[in-house]
Write a protein that binds this DNA or RNA. Structure first.
Lengths: 341, 341
DNA sequence: TTGTATGCGTTATCAT
DNA sequence: ATGATAACGCATACAA
């Protein structure tokens, strides 16, 4: 029976500690009914041997893997990465690993495939990113399969244990309020794509700020976009052709804001003197374009950490209780009072 | 024994097909010694039942998981994400899943921890990103443990089956050559951090291009950076204080190039009229700043796909043979002939 | 509080 | 070419 070459198993621990496998198993799984002495003795052997339970065997016996799955579809790259970082900060030094599973929203078999994935892989928990997180069927699927899940979104559309949300509406209200406070009266909105909760919330935030200031809501100042650079350019062209053109624009994300900036520059406009711009996301682009972009930063990594804690944390963890996170306005150089209009 | 509720198992298939478990197993694993009739019959039952082998059980029996691990440390976000996309394109619709495992280069226990990770998780294969991919000990570790691996880098520093490399040196030679062809003679280099192979290769490419043109290699025109925006700014300040200042600068990545652009703008310089700039990476930033940045694009996603194929593909796959990939110069608006010097 | 026997779903060994 | 039986390493039911 010489196979001491590889990892020690639960049998080795049991034999050396002079107890049964089951007792070792109890120590590992923190069973409450266990003699303190026995526990200490076993723990010592475990430490000496450097024993770590075999994840594959555990997964088979428990019918549950020690994996956290990140499910997303087509959000911006920076967000996915920030989420991964936040998740991994919590998962680091735990027995959990992160598995990334993109899906094709729009595919008719998406739910079916995801169901197969969950039933096969049996992850310990899943983190679902927007916009696919808004899909109620997906949440129900997790529920049915009995898989823990946390949804991320721009508004709290689920219960606390299953949700990490930012307050996009409020944040945008603040951002547009900042424009109004600077003296702007003709403020445009570049919207996100139809059907996205984030786009909806940001639009609402804009509308509420405009109305709160007693300003008229003008449809011509609200133009559609799809969160991409090019759509920001198209929106800017449409907006700057207006007479009079807006003196400021709030863009529902940074990438479109960069597009607006691009067009403004092409037309010889000075930002912010001739046109103020505010974006949303605080991507690296925002700080690196010229002028540096005033934008809304949402605490993605913090939200991801909280989500991971909800998924794998001990109950009662304070940090895991939070499920609403506030975004803040990052003031840089793309906002100024309006010029002579 | 009523548990037909869940997934069908290999036993169900065997019973219905009227064969033994082992035979089903042989079908699944494409064993060559198998009667064609039997195979077809079993395959039919498998299809009818929608049977899929349980990954956890396979992992336990095979002592090998059907996971591909992406190991990286602190490279730029865009690269990690592009790699993930490339990898996932190949892994999609296979039995493999992607698991992301960042490491802390510099930590003295890094190798040890990684060893534990590999022995515990037993991934089917690992993809190692630069700069940690340059660590020979890590490669040896994979070798010892018997884990397939592919290293990614800026030069082919390993054998084909274990390497996907770009030709940074040649690409930079071309980029700097482009500057020289435009008439520049005082061309600066913003270097990457010491110890990075990519930084080294890009520097060599610069030097080779300068020397090939019969130009003098001037140390004052070669300034250190660390691949971050701020270091690009510091480099630019140092460079633009020179008299005469350079008429063009090649930056070893886009982020630093954006920093150079930033400082040039602060000093009232026009780009490209007063200063031409070329970057490296073709990150989204490059296309979205003003002026759009001429830069070197390396085919990260393609490299990642090839790596995935090396890891999980059938032997003989042509696409999996490739291990050197060419980067190309993307000409945008940040290069012009030098003004009156 | 602890141990025994058995199951999880697959693959490997060694028969036939 | 196929099958019976034993791993694989851990957890659970039930007994002690």
């Amino acid at each position: 029976m010489m196979k001491r070459s590889a990892q020690p198993t639960i049998n080795d621990v049991a034999r050396i500690a002079g107890v049964s496998k089951k007792t070792v198993s109890r120590v590992i799984n923190r069973s409450p009914l266990l003699n303190g002495d026995t526990r200490r003795r076993v723990e010592e052997v475990i430490a000496n041997l450097g024993y770590v339970p075999n994840p594959q065997a555990r997964a088979l016996a428990l019918r549950r893997n020690f994996l956290i799955a990140l499910i997303h579809d087509n959000p911006n790259a920076q967000m996915v990465l920030n989420v991964q970082q936040g998740l991994l900060e919590v998962l680091r030094d735990t027995e959990f690993e992160l598995i990334v599973h993109p899906v094709d929203r729009g595919s008719p078999t998406m739910l079916e495939k995801l169901g197969q994935f969950l039933e096969r892989q049996r992850p310990y928990g899943v983190m679902i990113l927007p916009p696919i997180s808004e899909n109620e069927h997906l949440a129900q699927l997790c529920e049915q399969i009995g898989c823990r899940y946390v949804r991320m979104g721009s508004a709290p559309f689920a219960e606390g244990p299953h949700m990490v949300a930012s307050n996009d509406r409020e944040a945008v209200r603040g951002a547009v309020g900042h424009l109004i406070a600077a003296g702007h009266r003709r403020i445009a909105l570049v919207m996100g794509p139809h059907g996205f909760r984030s786009a909806f919330e940001r639009q609402k935030g804009y509308e509420e700020a405009i109305e709160a200031a007693g300003l008229p809501l003008q449809r011509t100042l609200m133009v559609a976009g799809d969160y991409r650079f090019e759509s920001g350019m198209r929106a800017a062209e449409q907006l700057l052709d207006l007479s009079p053109p807006p003196t400021a624009v709030f863009s529902s994300n940074d990438e479109m804001a960069a597009g607006v900036l691009h067009v403004a520059r092409e037309r010889g406009l000075n930002v912010p003197q001739d046109l103020s711009i505010i974006g949303f996301d605080d991507t690296p682009i925002a700080a690196h374009i010229w002028p540096p972009l005033t934008t809304v930063r949402w605490p993605i990594a913090t939200m991801a950490r909280a989500a991971a804690l909800k998924l794998v944390g001990e109950p009662g963890d304070e940090e895991a209780e939070a499920s609403l996170f506030v975004s803040t306005l990052v003031r840089r150089a793309s906002v100024a009072p309006p010029g002579e209009g």
